[in-house]
Design a protein around this nucleic acid. Structure first.
Lengths: 181, 181
DNA sequence: TTATACATGTAACTAGTTACATGATTGA
DNA sequence: TCAATCATGTAACTAGTTACATGTATAA
């Protein structure tokens, strides 16, 4: 979903600043299927304001930039719903990790092992983070559904990585390597 | 991985035209983790030619545009390897489907069911396609690894969708819907 | 004393998408 | 006769990334 629509989605759960929206994208339940940094969020919020999809209340603060708290409008809700009642397109998945492993035969066993181990560590960390995330919050069924999908994905990935590590590392021993590393 | 690098990857497996590269992106083993249409492939191939990473042999054909068969050069291989020996960044996953389901409570039960059923059908089709893909080909260990990851992913997704369908559909019955649909 | 959280934004750039333009051959 | 496959490409556009710019407060 484009960043503009994702911002509207966050704002249906309550008013927020650009800074807070980004946290949702990074750590919250949105992190599973949305990406976007300040460079895309702030411009998106400005465009949404121009379009009347959100309103902005500026709170002055001492010795800090003004907090700009955004709220979704009726028009904004309609814009969001327009996207929600259209059949969603296919998921987009890109993986430099898988691209690298695709060429395992051309790499050294040591490098492949390093890469796989790093990915295993990332999966473990992500699972840990997601499980803590679910502890505190009282999530709606939709939120829980998406969260559980994320957990299922990382559990599958972790299992796969662990079970197939030896196979792909062993495969590098045969065949000439394109790189000594 | 950017389209340029993905093209280099395809060309390590043999010479190909832009048209053939795109087929790899769509149906071949690359389809799991790479995307790109003609609009990005042809310009990428031109830039790679300028940079000396590929060479191009034009084959004239009757009543058809010339076939331009690209081959990777030594320099191209080095450029590819440069990417392969860098620690891959995190995977990028975006899902309009998950975004929609996140707001299940605001949608009608009928619509949520329609969307989930469509996704289940897509997963089944993709699994079918991937299993046929593996039948004919004699894949390397790297290719098989990536292929198996794709299969594991779609199997997990299919199981999840089927097991959780009733929960998320039932959840729409409570709570006011943003849309009658 | 050092890192993290708070808090905003722009400018330049990179990359990719969509729509357009062209048109024969082959199999169902 | 209709759809799919073969085969190339460009122009305009959309979207997103990266780096820069600024600065305080608080907890470890």
């Amino acid at each position: 979903m484009d960043v503009k629509t994702a911002c509207l989605g966050v704002l249906t759960m309550g008013d927020a600043t650009g800074y807070e929206i980004r946290k949702q994208f990074e750590d919250g339940p949105f992190s599973v299927f949305v990406e976007g940094g300040y460079g895309s969020i702030y411009p998106a919020l400005n465009r949404l304001t121009e379009e009347g999809c959100v309103t902005c209340a500026t709170e002055s603060q001492d010795k800090r930039p003004d907090r700009k708290v955004y709220s979704i409008t009726a028009k904004g809700k309609l814009a969001l719903v327009d996207r929600l009642v259209a059949m969603p397109g296919p998921d987009k998945f890109r993986s430099d990790f898988l691209f690298t492993l695709f060429f395992a035969e051309h790499l050294s066993a040591r490098w492949v092992e390093t890469v796989v181990d790093a990915r295993i560590a990332e999966c473990r960390a992500k699972l840990e983070q997601m499980r803590q995330c679910s502890h505190g919050t009282q999530a709606s069924a939709g939120h829980a559904y998406v969260h559980d999908f994320g957990v299922a994905y990382y559990e599958m990935a972790l299992r796969f990585l662990e079970e197939n590590k030896h196979v792909v590392v062993a495969a590098t021993l045969r065949g000439e390597t394109m790189v000594a590393e």
